[in-house]
């Protein structure tokens, strides 16, 4: 089998907050179409790594390559427009807006390359509205179409978060702890959802729940104190001594 193409690559990425180096010379390659999980204890720098890859934070050192193109100096919306979609650990759905409006904004951006239109009522952008309903239907969120995000359960907000991210029709999907704060049943639902889209996207996922990681990911990277301490298949990782001492505290 041919080596898959690397779609996203971090080279010696570094981020400091004051005196703390939170991400310390991390180099990673993410091959196309695979599900890559990032593990690590709290404070390992996983979310910060995401924030660097999406340029939510400026980079203090190193480079980011997106399909070989250097994107280290771009702004977050430019990264997004190059096909990188992301969900946040702390649910970042727009609480004052309805499910429809939340997903609509993502769909519209995918449909519409230029500046947002400023005349026609947004609901009257029929094609976008149709795609919005499709995404909501695919995730079983139709009943919430006209509900305000603030008014539903946390689990449903997490699903909306993923729906919004998918609706931007990204090629690379960054999921930051998609199951955090969810009940067993809800996280099973999210796991099935991720399995169902696996292969269609390159997925990079931060996850704490070992069972989720081991069940569905192709590659696993373990971080601790801002550094990569191990990379490999789920089976390799679960037997790695360094990982065990850092992550499982054994």
């Amino acid at each position: 089998m041919a080596e898959p193409v690397t779609v996203l690559e971090a080279i010696e990425l570094t981020k400091r907050f004051g005196k703390n180096t939170v991400v310390d010379g991390v180099s990673l390659k993410f091959p196309e179409g695979r599900l890559h999980a990032i593990l690590g204890p709290n404070g390992a720098g996983k979310t910060t790594l995401f924030n660097l890859l999406t340029k939510d934070y400026p980079v203090d050192g190193g480079e980011i390559l997106l399909r070989g193109e250097r994107v280290t100096r771009l702004r977050p919306h430019q990264i997004s427009r190059r096909g990188v979609g992301r969900s946040y650990q702390i649910t970042s759905v727009l609480r004052e807006l309805t499910f429809f409006e939340n997903v609509w904004l993502a769909s519209y951006r995918a449909d519409h390359a230029g500046a947002p239109g400023l005349w026609r009522d947004f609901r009257a952008h029929w094609a976008t509205a149709e795609k919005t309903r499709q995404v909501l239907a695919e995730l079983g969120l139709e009943p919430f179409t006209d509900r305000k995000a603030a008014d539903v359960s946390y689990g449903d907000q997490r699903l909306l978060e993923i729906a919004v991210t998918l609706a931007t029709r990204p090629e690379i999907l960054l999921l930051d702890e998609p199951t955090s704060g969810l009940s067993q049943r809800e996280s099973e639902r999210v796991k099935q959802l991720i399995l169902s889209i696996k292969g269609k996207f390159t997925i990079i996922m931060i996850e704490h729940k070992m069972n989720v990681v081991m069940d569905i990911s192709d590659d696993v990277t373990v971080m601790n104190r801002g550094k990569v301490i191990a990379s490999g298949s789920p089976a390799q990782i679960s037997t790695d001594a360094a990982v065990r001492s850092a992550y499982f505290g054994l």
């Binding site: 939510d56 919306h77 946040y88 970042s92 727009l94 609480r95 004052e96 807006l97 609509w104």
Partner: peptide, 17 residues
């Protein structure tokens, strides 16, 4: 709608592109 949304969470709007 973009403005209303950005008022609430500009960072999310940027990450949507």
């Amino acid at each position: 709608l973009v403005l209303e949304a950005a008022k609430e969470n500009p960072r999310r709007m940027a990450s949507l592109g």
